[in-house]
Design a protein around this nucleic acid. Structure first.
Lengths: 108, 108
DNA sequence: TTAACTAATCGCAATATTACGATAATTTAA
DNA sequence: TTAAATTATCGTAATATTGCGATTAGTTAA
């Protein structure tokens, strides 16, 4: 079918999956790393940094915006992208809790 | 195209993306949570727990095995799945470093 | 051996994703 | 106003993902 059965899972599960899915592409990891390390965050700079076309980069930015990890402020003709601190910290906590929930081998 | 330009990104970027992509489905999050909380980890128990068919669950297990987060020991007619501690800790570290790399708002 | 059980794989259909060029929308500069 | 620059969106093609039923492969029990 190609259609995830979202309604069969909990909100937590769907939210975590949505977040990790958004990070699940090397271009989007690269965008995040670039936004973390640079002070400027003009869209054009991101396009220049990535080995992808402008329209493709724009799509990846949209996906990261969808989950809220980044936000874009329109500033004249350009758009200034950056990490959304609040959502970032929430995501960090959620993913951290998942990884921390495993303590030690149960079997095998 | 539908084909990620893997070769244009660094190994770190591809590895992180591959890992988060594997976590990017609610069924796979549910599987991980189930393996974390239960002591038993028989494949059939996972199938019973999830609202998906046996073949679909098997596919999700395969994806998690592909990135190494879980491993499956064939034990007679059943297969015993569990978290792979070593890969888990590596993944935890890699994702943790990504989230920790962001310190404070740069702009916007 | 046969039968029952477990789990992986195959084949298929529906939908999603990735990527690009072209176009549109917006803003600034001339 | 016109032209240039920036970014979003549209349309399209190729590939990937999700899900299921059916089948296959393997093991155990009778």
């Amino acid at each position: 079918m190609g259609l995830t059965k979202t309604e069969e899972f909990t909100k937590t599960q769907n939210d975590l999956a949505s977040l990790t899915k958004a990070l699940g592409h090397p271009a989007r990891i690269a965008i995040i790393q670039f936004l973390v390390k640079t002070k400027s965050c003009v869209c054009g700079d991101i396009v220049d940094e990535l080995p992808l076309s402008q329209s493709t980069v724009s799509q990846h930015l949209k996906e990261l915006k969808r989950v809220g990890l980044i936000k874009g402020d329109i500033d004249g003709p350009t758009t200034c992208y950056c990490i959304d601190e609040k959502v970032w910290n929430k995501a960090k906590k959620a993913v951290g809790e998942l990884f921390d929930s495993y303590k030690e081998p149960n079997c095998c």
